[in-house]
Design a protein around this nucleic acid. Structure first.
Lengths: 361, 361
DNA sequence: GCCTCAATGACACCGGTTACCAGACGATAG
DNA sequence: CTATCGTCTGGTAACCGGTGTCATTGAGGC
């Protein structure tokens, strides 16, 4: 701390002779109170929109606050409230596109509220995971926490947050135990969209490359896919479901195996875009054309999906919207933000060039 | 605020009957002082590593802090210090991969320091850009700010931060005015790596798709590329440099134009991977094979680069490292963190399948 | 004239910090 | 051996910039 102050002192010295300290100082609640000829408590009431302030008093105080462009100090306020104005964004998703979109959406939702976003990636498998999270939440006295998959599915973390009395919103693909603070992404819907699309194109022999079934997202996508097929009278053969690891390489291996079979599937639904691209590669290796010989559908609409050739048909999650909705939900729970907002978000199928009519036998 | 407290009160009520308030309360400096039988001032000295504490006193106090797993409240500390423990990460890069990596690196660097990261995307072209930034920095009394391209190149922002007495580190591709708080990425080096690679493969007619030259990164990459070619006795023909917008579509258009010429360039260096993929598409449209007919090199090593076919040769920036180094540099400036660290980071060429020997004429 | 209620202010407090002072302690001088 | 002095430490109070609690004031209703 010594050193730190030295550094600051040096900087101060280097710009000595600027405006006088008095005039440069940010105004405090005391300054406002003095100028408005009221007590600081009354100013505080104005800040917090207490109904117990006479209208003209409020006007006078507001005018002075505006004139001095006064903003209350979040640290001081937080200290008194025993609570900060920091929202924690806890994530462990390996897909950067996903993280950035979610983060951006949350920031959209937080905008103008005075809340700041503190980000915190984590590793659920770490021994100290829960301890770290506890430290983060408790030390910062977080206003609230927003959880995205797959940490959002961690019940231990949810319990911890309840114990710490820290409000949270979980974004997840299925209903969890505490439905109240949940936001559902409907992965099953996305799966069934893909299924209907393939069925309508005439496909009957369809394969599925699923992500690790320990991920709810993978589980739900598969379930939705099977249900969508069933709606069209098609049974998803368990033998044509290969489990992979959400990675390109694992998708490649699974794709190779599925496409080497006789009879061959005419379509493959992959649990994410990475694996879909692995399947592309597998098809290419086997001399199969997409979509003429085999249709391939992904999930996520990663930026790469539109770039590859042929452009990938995929299911898009409105992740940024989900972030925004999650943030507003948190704020609404805590009594800031009085808008209404719908709380569930539907994925949509983006049809590109990788899906086409089933080939004649 | 009323509503907010109501919400909290409701939650409190719902879990009434948990542990008693007294035992659940986080310990404060007073608790430590009482138990250690010293004054709070002494505890404060221990926290701040003052040299004026007898060794056994320090031991005793530390032991009790550890036992109660006491952590000083950053808000209270910040209030007294007139400074928070929040580092601001200000970015405006459209590439999510870039942002996430930078962010992750910064978090790596901050880890264990007790500093939190508050993220803030921005739009340099907005009218209120500077005002927003001023508000952010001043309201939160930020410990410091880390700037990544291209906001890092904004001199108005740098001046603002100096005026606000807020320490900052700028990550940029060239030396700027205040070299002291700078971290250089050496984009020119990356450009010349690409140039040497192509020259060594025998290419003589090379084209370049540059990003917007208002971006220093674009300017530097181009400059380095020209210099690298010059080293091998090749002149970069200005007519074969097309400016594009760092996007797939603009890369496609520029690629089309370059590849339609006679004689045709045998290699193209694109200012980023997106544009390189646009050039892929242009080559495909014209019936040209990569790399047999034309070699293509990108920049950034976006995740997509390894996934496309043929896999893209590209220049990799160690962005995550840059984030870490930037964070430690900021900390060092402010007297926390006493490690030494090198402060410049070199890009490396990742050779994949999209670059090959120049075709015979 | 008393009671009620809206509006305001006085004061302590949130959990740390600094400024300043007092007491302990060892060394030194008389 | 005692008085005096300087050096360490630790205690006390004030402060950072807001908030909660409770008392006070004045106006209006009965």
């Amino acid at each position: 701390m010594n050193d730190r102050n030295q550094a600051r002192a040096r900087r101060d010295a280097s710009r000595a002779g600027a405006a006088s300290d008095e005039s440069r100082r940010r105004p405090t609640i005391n300054d406002i109170a003095r100028l408005a000829e009221v007590s600081k408590k009354t100013v505080s009431r104005v800040i917090n929109e207490s109904p117990f302030v006479k209208e003209d008093t409020r006007q006078k105080v507001s005018a002075i606050m505006r004139e001095l462009s006064y903003e209350p100090d979040p640290q001081a306020r937080g200290l008194a409230f025993r609570r900060s104005f920091l929202v924690g964004f806890i994530y462990n998703n390996p897909n950067p596109q996903y993280v950035v979109n979610a983060q951006q959406g949350i920031l959209d939702g937080l905008k103008g509220s005075g809340l700041e976003l503190a980000v915190r990636p984590c590793d659920r498998d770490s021994d100290t995971f829960l301890e770290e999270m506890r430290g983060f939440v408790q030390r910062q006295k977080l206003f609230g926490v927003i959880l995205f998959p797959s940490v959002s599915e961690d019940e231990r973390l949810a319990e911890l947050l309840q114990g710490l009395d820290c409000p949270y919103v979980r974004v997840a693909s299925v209903e969890l135990d505490d439905a109240e603070s949940m936001l559902v992404t409907n992965d099953a819907v996305g799966g069934s969209e893909a299924a209907r699309h393939l069925a309508d194109l005439g496909h009957r022999r369809v394969g599925h490359i699923t992500g690790p079934l320990t991920f709810r997202s993978a589980h739900e996508r598969r379930r939705g896919f099977a249900e969508g097929l069933a709606e069209r009278g098609i049974v998803l053969d368990e033998a044509w479901v290969k489990q992979a690891g959400y990675t390109f390489e694992s998708g490649l291996a699974a794709g190779r195996e599925l496409l080497a079979r006789t009879p061959r599937p005419t379509a493959i639904f992959a649990g994410n875009d990475e694996m879909a691209l692995g399947a592309y590669q597998a098809a290419r290796d086997l001399g199969l054309r997409v979509p003429d010989d085999v249709s391939i559908i992904g999930y996520d609409d990663a930026p790469i999906a539109a770039r590859v050739w042929p452009a990938l048909t995929t299911v898009r999650l409105p992740i940024r919207d989900m972030g925004r909705v999650a943030a507003r939900k948190l704020m609404r729970q805590e009594g800031v933000d009085h808008d209404e907002a719908d709380e569930t978000v539907r994925p949509t199928l983006v049809v590109r060039a990788s899906s086409g009519p089933a080939p004649a036998d």
